[in-house]
Nucleic acid binder design. Structure first.
Length: 654
RNA sequence: GCCGACGUAGCUCAGCUGGUAGAGCAGCGGUUUCGUAAACCGCAGGUCACGGGUUCGAAUCCCGUCGUCGGCUCCA
């Protein structure tokens, strides 16, 4: 057995990876802050460069140990890829036996042995032919030669660029095609656990066969592992699905349908407050509100270009009998109606409804439109991914000269919102086009692409926003910016979007009369800084862990009386009426519970402010203020206490 | 949509290898008059997701459907 230890620590760590190690340190703070796993792009880069933090290296090695264990139990297993991921590692395996959680114990036992044996990881560089030879003998990701070739490994070798070195790693009998790096010895894997098994398409392509993805996590020490699981438990407590039920914010019902959330009064309040915020902000920014129906004829979506592109994510059309009869009489295709999956075509029609001059631009149409998208069943996820959604939508029509200012203003709006909500962990994804796909995936307007992407990039740079550029992910009609965030359990999703569109306006013949008396097509921005009510509220629930700021709180003040003396109750009710007179969402707890019981219930419902009122307070024309999470703040004169509440709500602080 | 797991009272969960369902909280009815995180007593509440099958007998075993969850894919 080789000496290990020091050599392992000597491995130089590139400077640019500092960020990642920082991230893992901050994982420990994940409970109070906000979960932020590695982003996909970062991960891809990592894999490409095969540079890893110490922890990732350890986890990567753990994945080899996992594969070794699986092979000991099922020697015929075929392995694909086994990288470290945000919270652990996985290995994709093709195996007739369906691995279930019942197998984990067995697998872990084998892994433990491998780790106890403290086998060194040896790196070997081989020629392509040697690698292929081994693969054909089934010797890659295997303990010995086998009758079946290592098919996935052979495929991976085929895809390694000719100029790149091919390396193998050996630990005990296990040999794997692997770029590395690894820890020195299996014994360095201090603590690990097999956590779950799921399926994944080979290379993430729906057309490829499905493999079993066995997930695990590993740390240097047992304590870190325990802390990690404790952290997961904490994260679960702020899961919006759990809090949504506990705080009576929203529900799903089988008879209503999957992905169709209903907001209870407490949840509806939050939606209303967000809407109020959006309306005020947009009014000040020169937007005008419009209102459009939830359905439209097929012809609208044919003209907009959405139908072929979006048909899969739209609810199937409804056929109207009367319209169908009409068709026969008048030969008009009128029978098919769709629930709208987006608002833009309706808004475009409003633009076209009135002759427009360059003097009218920019024109900003805003609507909290209700859309319906038939998301695949497996994609539904609490409030974050639903089938009925209300979007904080608006479409801005402008001349090319106005683009930069408008786009900038939209970004400003996001940033202001994020500041208001204290959202700090997010990532701007700037999606651009691939010039080689002009005319197929992207509209064939090379100049406009160049212009708008350049302008967009400049806006991002000049505002100092942290962003990543993602080529080939633009919308077909233009570049876009998505704001990416993460749910507490680590799912990533977009909470806001800002898209440039120079295609639809043309398709729908939108024009304005320019200074030179020529009809021109406007550029359009689609933007939704607050995303959809559903997703944004889901996000906020987790962001605040249900402890909403006063202005967003479903119940802002609850009045709790000590005893139910009629005079005291009258005093409490007069305060209630005064609060409600100021539009404060206040309630009185008239239950027969003792004061401690009332407080307990208010705290559990995370009511923002409690006015505790006893005879002492009544006699002093005062209330005792208690704030959720802060406790008793003592007695205050009634007018002051009410004034503070009203003021704080008006300023949307606290 | 795909793979896997799960589905017991409004909520959280118990119910061993099949013998016919139980607790806490919430709810309701009383009693209690309590100064900052649960006063006491009682009552009621379940075609064990739904449908079929195996069995003398199914919450428990098998099949199907629906739904949820973990992933994959996709997205606001």
């Amino acid at each position: 057995m080789k000496e290990v230890g020091t050599a392992c620590r000597d491995v130089p760590r590139p400077k640019q990876l500092h960020f990642y190690s920082k991230f893992f340190v901050s994982l420990a703070l994940f409970v109070v802050s906000f979960h932020r796993p590695l982003m996909k792009e970062e991960r891809k880069n990592l894999e490409a460069r095969t540079q890893m933090t110490d922890l990732e290296r350890l986890r990567h090695s753990a994945s080899h140990v996992l594969a070794t264990a699986i092979l000991k139990i099922w020697p015929e297993a075929q392995f694909a890829a086994g990288p470290p991921v945000e919270n652990g590692f996985y290995y994709d395996v093709d195996l007739p036996h369906r691995i279930s959680p019942d197998d984990f114990e067995k697998i872990e036992a084998e892994m433990k042995e491998e780790i106890k044996a403290n086998r060194p990881f040896e790196r070997m560089e081989v020629s392509r032919d040697e690698a292929l030879e081994l693969g054909k003998k089934g010797r890659l990701a295997a303990l010995s030669e086998r009758s079946e070739p290592s098919k996935f490994k052979l495929d991976i070798i085929e895809n390694i660029p000719p100029d790149e070195k091919i390396s193998l790693y050996r630990s005990g009998d296990f040999i794997d095609l692997c770029a590395g790096p690894h820890v020195k010895c299996t014994g360095e894997i201090g603590a690990f656990k097999v956590t779950s098994v799921a399926s994944a398409y080979y290379k993430g392509d729906e057309k490829n066969p499905q493999l079993q993805r066995v997930y695990g996590t590993a740390f240097k020490t047992k304590k870190e592992l325990d802390d990690y699981f404790a952290m997961l438990e904490e994260a679960k407590k702020r899961d919006h699905r759990k809090l949504g039920r506990e705080l009576e914010l929203f529900v799903f019902d089988d008879d209503v349908g999957p992905g169709l959330p209903m907001f209870l009064p407490r949840g509806a309040v939050i939606a209303e407050e967000l809407e109020k915020l959006a309306k005020e902000t947009e009014f000040a920014a020169g937007y005008q509100r419009v209102r459009t129906p939830h359905i439209a004829r097929e012809s609208l979506y044919k003209k907009s270009g959405h139908l072929p592109y979006y048909a899969e994510s739209m609810f199937p059309p409804m056929e109207l009998e009367e319209a169908r009869l009409g068709e026969r009489d008048h030969g008009t295709p009128a029978s098919l109606y769709y629930l709208k999956a987006m608002n833009c075509p309706h808004h475009h029609k409003l633009f076209a409804a009135v002759p427009r001059s360059y003097r009218d631009l920019p024109l900003r149409f805003a609507e909290y439109g209700t859309c319906y998208r038939y998301e695949k069943s497996g994609e539904l996820f609490g409030l974050m991914r639903v089938r009925s959604l209300q979007m904080n939508d608006a479409h801005i029509y402008m001349t090319p000269e106005q683009f930069e200012a408008e786009f900038n203003a939209v970004n400003e709006m996001y940033l202001n919102y994020f500041k208001l909500f204290g959202i700090e962990k997010y990532l701007m994804r700037f999606s651009t086009h691939d010039p080689s796909k002009l005319g197929e995936k992207f509209v064939d307007e090379p100049e406009l692409w160049k212009q708008t992407e350049e302008m967009t990039r400049n806006v991002l740079k000049s505002s100092g926003i942290n962003y990543v550029e993602v080529p080939n992910e633009a919308a077909f009609y233009g570049p876009k910016i998505d704001v990416q965030a993460w749910s507490v359990i680590g799912r990533e999703f977009s909470i806001a979007t800002n898209q440039v569109d120079f295609a639809q306006p043309r398709r729908l013949n939108l024009v304005y009369k320019d200074r030179d008396n020529i009809d021109k097509t406007p550029i359009c921005i689609h933007r939704a800084p607050l995303g959809t009510h559903e997703r944004f509220i889901g996000f906020l629930i987790e962001h605040y862990a249900g402890n909403f700021p006063l202005w967003l709180s479903p119940e802002q003040v609850r009045i709790l009386t000590i005893g139910d003396d009629p005079k005291l109750m009258d005093y409490a009710r007069s305060i209630l009426h005064e609060l409600r007179g100021h539009q404060v969402r206040a309630e009185i707890d008239e239950s027969p519970d003792k004061i401690n019981g009332k407080i307990q219930r208010a705290e559990q419902m995370k009511v923002h402010t409690m006015f505790v009122i006893g005879k002492r307070d009544m006699d002093a024309d005062a209330v005792s203020v208690r704030i959720h999470g802060k406790g008793n703040l003592g007695a205050k004169p009634r007018n002051e206490a009410i004034g503070d509440i009203v003021q704080s709500i008006r300023e949307r602080r606290g």
